[in-house]
Computed example of a mutant assay.
Amino acid sequence: MPDKQRTQTLQKAERLQKYNALYDAVEVGVSLTAGFTSGSAALIGWGLDSTIEVISASTLWWRLHGEIKDIPDEKVHQREKITLYVIAASFLIVSCFITYDSVNKLINQETANWSTLGIIILCVSLVVNPILIHYKRKYGKKLNSEELIADSKDTFICLYQTVAVLGGLLAVRFLDLWWADPVAALLIVPYALKECYEAFRKARVK
């Protein structure tokens, strides 16, 4: 890719990460408020995943910004490794918390209450996340960036989690399935651990 075209793509990817971090910050505030108010393990886990995404998006922005500013290749490479390690750690932390919180709620048979605020932010996320995934993959392929592609997978997991959490809340509300909320949260864990391993492996070989 010509230098000018690569720079333009880098700038677009950098802006995308800014928007991603800002939107995820909104998700964090709304979902954690709704989750703790309603006692929903799935909403709380979803909010924590959004917290990790803020960190991941910000770290990836830092890496892209460095290349735009034409820092030495060695430092760009170092930032790539750090970004992948941050993404891997993010997946691991979220997986551990969701597992602990969900199992605890299953053991105590805790039922989540209805949360209109939670439903609204989940529905908004169903629209926003596919757009983010599309452009992260697009720019990731153009730039040959494993970090952007890994981050698109992180966002895909968030989308999958959104569907699971929404389904769990609706099942609790309309089908009276008290266990649906923590089970919906646990469905996320295998995917998150898989992506944790992939990001860590790529960081090690860089």
Rank of each mutant, 00 (worst) to 15 (best):
P130R: 03
V86Y: 04
I82F: 12
Y139A: 11
S125N: 10
T111D: 00
N108Q: 14
Y85D: 13
L126W: 10
C158W: 10
L143V: 09
N108S: 12
D154E: 12
F156M: 09
F156R: 12
E147R: 04
I121T: 14
K136R: 06
G140H: 03
V127I: 15
L132E: 04
K105W: 15
E147S: 12
A150T: 09
D154F: 15
N144F: 06
K138E: 03
H134Y: 11
I133L: 03
P130D: 10
N108A: 14
Y139H: 08
G118V: 05
V128D: 00
S125A: 15
A112S: 11
W114G: 02
V103S: 05
S145R: 00
C123S: 09
S125I: 10
I149W: 02
K153M: 10
G118I: 06
E110P: 09
V124W: 05
C158R: 05
V103L: 08
V128P: 00
L143W: 01
V103R: 01
C158N: 03
I87C: 02
I157A: 11
N129P: 04
L143P: 00
N129I: 09
K138W: 09
A112H: 02
N129V: 10
S152D: 04
E147P: 10
K153T: 05
F91E: 06
I98G: 11
G140W: 01
P130G: 03
L122C: 05
I93K: 07
E147Y: 09
A112C: 07
L143H: 00
I120W: 09
W114D: 07
L143N: 00
F156E: 07
N129M: 07
F97N: 12
D101W: 15
D154K: 11
N108C: 12
W114R: 01
E110F: 15
K138D: 04
T99C: 14
A88K: 07
C96H: 07
S125P: 08
L106A: 13
V86A: 09
I93G: 14
K142E: 05
G140L: 05
I98M: 15
Y100M: 14
H134K: 11
H134Q: 09
L117R: 03
V128Y: 02
N129K: 01
I107T: 10
E110R: 07
V127R: 03
I119N: 00
G140E: 01
L126D: 04
S102C: 14
I131D: 00
K153C: 10
S145I: 13
E147G: 12
T116L: 02
L126Y: 04
